[in-house]
Design a binder for these strands. Structure first.
Lengths: 391, 391
DNA sequence: TAAGTTTGTCCACAGGTTGCACAAAGGTAG
DNA sequence: CTACCTTTGTGCAACCTGTGGACAAACTTA
């Protein structure tokens, strides 16, 4: 059934509009909200007084006068509730308590040696319990839990496949709901990263942005027309399995010449072994390679450049397809940005369609290693605020 | 300034909802509209009476009783106005008069030998004038003109580049506005095709659909979340310039290994020449190749199969990236569907990610050669109906 | 023929926004 | 210091639209 419009809906929409305006411009006066939204002053006053009752907005002292009566400034009360937001990675779990602004209040990170679901789940639950215990007292308490996973996740929150964790058909959402009596959100890590970067990484959030999460594999989160795009079933963004080399290296996905067989952490390590760049007594890890690159190891630098060029190929394809405003590179290969920038930029500049390069920014994730965590926080907050309308 | 909600907006939204319901379910009674929309019976009555006054809806005789008073059936009056919708191709112009249902009332097609803008524009204006002259008398007359072009079109309707027409920076919209005092819409041909197929090619329009227009080059129109996605500047969909062969054939776009260098009308003809499939006294055209294929020319069939496999590669990439519900192939290569289906389906089935193949339909355009025309009609109609709200 | 059902209209009512008047609070110029 | 202007925020009447129920019309069914 389509949504019908009546006075109640109007009020909720306007109330949400006022709250969003306050969040984005805090501190702001009632008069300024009225001007910015186009709503009548009286309407704003009445909606604001409800928002104050609901603890989402607080009044601070008077602001500076602009030639008349001094305004009462309104503040968004980001401490009215908290989220527990988790980045469940391969070999680690990073969990954070955030406020309603997505600001991290407390963060915990634990290495998990084995990726068996039972062990991971136990660690996850323990971390979440810790954070909930430490949450400050607030009007709404912990409003929800969000977990970003490197997996194909259905719209219903089921983990269909997590190749790097070796998981298949896991009801993570259900399992968490059995433990915690809170709303649970499960999302793909790249989708969450994209959303986090869009919401919290820019002064003016881009409307069309592709976030390429390049770690062991490659996934993408896509912000299109200001919204996260997830595809028909929630599986979009598998840019790692885009063929860029016809009849190329075969991939476990069943295809050949896949992007992520030429540009990923996995590939870097494979080449490091093949080319004997890492000795037997050294750790086979990205960090080892980074150290060598810092020490100007020519062969490692050469490898980085080669991978950079392949990333350039993949991103050029994406740019030509989407005409995005921003392309961000996140996840593990973000740590290689110093070396990757020149080959990537060079490739894109020389190969992408000229029109698409106007107004295009190619950059690395800005939220350090918190893209996924903050994205999950954003989802949880948004869901919470949206659900208020149904009351 | 954000849009504010008030009683007027509520009314316009509900009125639009009622009209859409009538359009989609015509004929339908007031009571059924109320049930389907969730609106109150009284509200529906009053909105319908306005729609009747505005000539968008007419009453027909009583319908069948379902055990009580017989309902008065409401019909959408598709003849309340007409659009002139044009497919401006390479070498031809196809223009049609459509009603508000997108049904073609009259269609004119003219071959244009040279693609100089002056000649094309003269022909275009002449065709449009003819159609306007023949438009039936109606309440709103001709409500707008839409032109789909094989070009990079800005959001503002400027043709930035039409490689196959050899046009650059042409103000087509402005030029038409100088001649006709009607709203003018200019869109990329693939975007229009996608929209036309989505709106008029299905009983239940798909929400996520990729329309690959494979002609001389390859472009795509993307319907994402039920809306046409055009990218930051309106240039999205250049899937023809996605690299599928690293270090492959160079393309005039400056890149190498582009999709459209392996799978397009252009490539078919180039290979036909190179392999001596077409004799000197024969016409170098797709139609010649089709005739030979119909006659079971093994070499031609082999060529079609090769191209089909490349199309499979490109579409597999698209499917992995978007997780669409429907992928359609339109434009010239639609005529080769008989021969292209097996290799394309085989490639996609064996290579695309399994999850993405669930609920996926790969097919050819269903609106024959009217995808673009009907898409432009849909844009024009939608714009007309939307603008009614501003009155 | 009577009872029940469905359709569509009418009308009082509720709730929301608007526009304006007005009070409160501060600035500014002489 | 005073008089006047500007800005902010509240209060209130007017207006608009959807809702819900009553009701009449029209038809089916037993």
């Amino acid at each position: 059934m389509s949504r019908t419009w009546n006075q109640y809906v109007v009020k909720q929409e306007n109330k949400a509009l006022v709250l969003t305006t306050i969040i984005n411009h805090t501190p702001i006066s009632r008069a300024a909200v009225a001007q910015s939204t186009g709503l009548n002053k009286g309407t704003v006053s009445s909606l604001v007084s409800e928002l104050i009752d609901e603890a989402f907005v607080t009044e601070s002292g008077p602001g500076a006068s602009s030639g008349g009566r001094r305004p009462v400034m309104l503040l968004f009360n980001a401490k009215a509730g908290f989220t527990v937001s988790v980045d469940l990675g391969v070999g680690y779990i990073q969990a954070a308590l955030t406020d309603l602004n997505g600001e991290i209040v407390q963060v915990e990170k634990k290495q998990v040696k084995e990726s068996t679901f039972d062990l991971v789940f136990e660690t996850l639950v323990h971390l979440i319990e810790q954070l909930i215990k430490h949450a400050p007292v607030s009007r709404y308490g912990v409003i929800g839990i969000g977990v970003g996973v490197p997996a194909v996740v259905s719209h219903e929150g089921e983990i269909l496949l997590a190749p790097n964790l070796n998981w298949k058909n896991i009801q993570l959402k259900q399992a968490l709901e059995d433990v915690f009596d809170l709303p649970i959100l499960i999302e793909n890590e790249a989708n969450a990263g994209a959303y986090g970067e869009m919401r919290f990484g820019f002064k003016q959030p881009p409307k069309d942005m592709i976030y390429a999460s390049i770690g062991i594999g490659i996934g993408a989160g896509m912000i299109l027309d200001g919204k996260l795009y997830t595809g028909k079933s929630g599986f979009s963004g598998e840019i790692g399995h885009m063929t860029i080399v016809k009849d190329g290296t075969s991939c476990r996905c069943g295809n050949v010449g896949c992007f992520e067989r030429y540009a990923s952490e996995q590939v870097l390590l494979e080449h490091a072994v093949k080319r004997h760049l890492i000795k037997a007594n050294e750790d086979l890890s990205l960090d080892t390679l980074i150290k060598k690159a810092e020490a100007h190891d020519q062969e490692v630098l050469q490898l980085f450049e080669e991978v950079g060029e392949y990333i350039g190929i993949g991103l050029t394809n994406i740019i030509n397809i989407f005409n995005p405003e921003v392309v961000l590179i996140g996840n593990r290969l973000r740590d290689l940005q110093k070396w990757l920038i020149p080959p990537i930029e060079h490739y894109i500049h020389s190969r992408a369609i000229g029109f698409h390069q106007q107004d295009l920014t190619v950059d690395f994730a800005k939220l350090e290693n918190f893209s996924t965590v903050k994205g999950m926080a954003a989802f949880t907050i948004e869901r919470f605020l949206a659900q208020l309308k149904d009351i």
